[in-house]
């Protein structure tokens, strides 16, 4: 299909220390089509951020090491590119927005300096035009009176505005793919709603693809076309939004959905997944989820789970549920 913009194939990234090897990504594959919003969901340490950093080749090496796999962007393997070629991709074609806008903005430069830099690194444009474009970008991301804000330093902006500036920087060269790594986690709900609306508006206007990384299932349900659920360095389930939320076929996805608190569940005990997320250096053999899984059978501890196809692109790595046709979880209220 030529509609596919980004295709990550069997990506393996390990972090190698003196005594231990953390297998952050253990064979991860996913795809983003043009104009699509794809969500990577998972808890801390599951490898979702590492996979994004690997796409842009900005994981620290060493200790990180890409052990195998491909990152195809428009058919080109980004892992084969030279440093200079990669530099042309970053920002120009793939841009990234990080979680903490205060640490990703440079505190000693003004907003204009920082947006300007993003433009001039990639394009030869004269100063006047750059200035005009900075104003236009700030307007696009909904910052009121952008002319006045250009000379502000990051500390003079609120958290929501800082995140808007980060988005403006990411948009500076009109990327084809925007990677957003937990962009609203540090923000208040009302501000989060503003930023989410902004993403959707920008995406429609610019026909941009969005790879959105988050742990918040509420946000996912609101924006995702397709979802990949990650656990301990592998993708355990993938499918479109309604499949994942209404017909989850992996015990981990089911567990995540049923453990969400809601007012409707008041008075009853919340379902919870026992145990904790495994240390990436000491992952259990077989299915990494089996020590916490209610459905685990003996084979789960020894065999790496195969992919089971439920049709319509809905895949899950749990043969136990697939073969036993275990009852579905009740619909979320």
């Amino acid at each position: 299909m030529d509609n596919i913009l980004l295709s990550v194939q069997d990506l393996k990234v390990y972090f190698i220390g003196n005594e231990r090897v953390a297998r952050a990504l253990d064979g991860v594959s996913y795809e983003v089509s043009k104009g699509e919003t794809v969500c990577l969901v998972g808890e801390s340490g599951c490898g979702k951020t590492v996979s994004a950093l690997t796409i842009l080749r900005i994981i620290p090496q060493p200790p990180g090491k890409i052990m195998g796999g491909k990152v195809l962007f428009n058919g080109q393997n980004l892992l084969d590119l030279s440093k200079e070629e990669m530099q042309k991709i970053r920002g120009n074609h793939i841009a990234m927005v990080f979680q903490e806008p205060m640490t990703s903005l440079n505190p000693v430069f003004t907003v204009e300096d920082q947006i300007q830099e993003a433009i001039t690194v990639h394009e030869m444009v004269d100063e006047r035009e750059v200035h005009q474009r900075c104003i236009q970008l700030l307007k696009d991301v909904g910052i009121p009176s952008p002319e006045g804000r250009l000379k502000d330093y990051p500390h003079q902006l609120s958290g929501g505005q800082r995140q808007r500036v980060m988005i403006a920087m990411a948009l500076a060269c009109d990327p084809d793919l925007m990677i957003a790594d937990e962009p609203t986690t540090a923000l208040d709900v009302t501000i989060q709603a503003q930023i989410l609306n902004l993403f959707q508006e920008l995406q429609q206007k610019r026909q941009m693809s969005l790879l959105y990384i988050t742990h918040d299932l509420g946000v996912v349900a609101n924006i995702a076309d397709r979802i990949y659920v990650m656990y301990a360095g592998i993708i355990v389930e993938q499918g479109d939004a309604s499949n994942i939320f209404h017909n989850p076929c992996h015990p981990y996805t089911q567990g995540l959905l049923t453990s969400l608190p809601s007012r409707a569940k008041r008075g009853s005990k919340l379902h919870s997944i026992p145990g904790t997320v495994p240390d990436p250096a000491h992952k259990p053999g077989g299915c990494p989820f089996h020590p916490r899984c209610d459905f685990a059978i003996q084979a789960c501890g020894t065999e790496f789970p195969r992919v089971c196809d439920y049709g319509e692109g809905h895949l899950s790595r749990c043969p136990v549920l697939y073969e036993n046709k275990v009852p579905k979880v009740p619909k979320m209220t």
Binding site: S158, I191, A193, L196, G218, V220, A221, N222, A241, H246
Partner: peptide, 18 residues
């Protein structure tokens, strides 16, 4: 945002910051 893809209401965002 509610965790239900069928209930995709436009999030009514308050204008301005706290």
């Amino acid at each position: 945002p509610t965790p239900d893809p069928d209930d995709r209401h436009e999030l009514k965002a308050l204008a301005g910051d706290v």
